[in-house]
Amino acid sequence: MSDATSFAFLGEEFLTWLWYRLETEGGDFDLGDGHVVGVALDDFLAFAPRDDDETEHTLRKGVPSRSSSARAALRAGRRLRRAKLVLAKGELQWSFVLDASCMGLRSIKLPDDDEEADGPAERSLDRAANFMLLHELVTRLYREFLRVRLRRDYLASDGERQAAWMASG
């Protein structure tokens, strides 16, 4: 088993934690170095199977995070594997699907082009910068999770609180 495969759980725990964090503390994050962002779950969620004999469970359209199916998946102890997210920083807004098992960013839609950008060359610069910025912001969000998850008392503290949240509702 490769490292990328064997640590898929950590990405999935990150995405599940992100949902927990959004619901319990809101979607605003101060990621340091002036990076203050807002995050929201959008209209696509896919839950990882908990065991080999279970299947992936996908929810689309509407607000799946508020659906009874989503709550049931959490109560069943399932981790979120993929989700469509909206991330905003100031006037910039990205939407993308995070495939947490490999931390891949899929179906990215960049912020609208800067109206003041002068020609294709300048727009290319902006777009490239926005792809890089999105990657940096997701990495910083992941770091926020790791700061919690990689504490040795995690299971007795934040992990316990997240378990209570997952069991509720």
Partner: peptide
């Protein structure tokens, strides 16, 4: 991936 990103994320050494 999740592990490599963690290693490059700037988290503390003990973590």
């Amino acid at each position: 991936g999740p592990r490599e990103l963690a290693e490059h994320s700037g988290i503390a050494r003990d973590a």
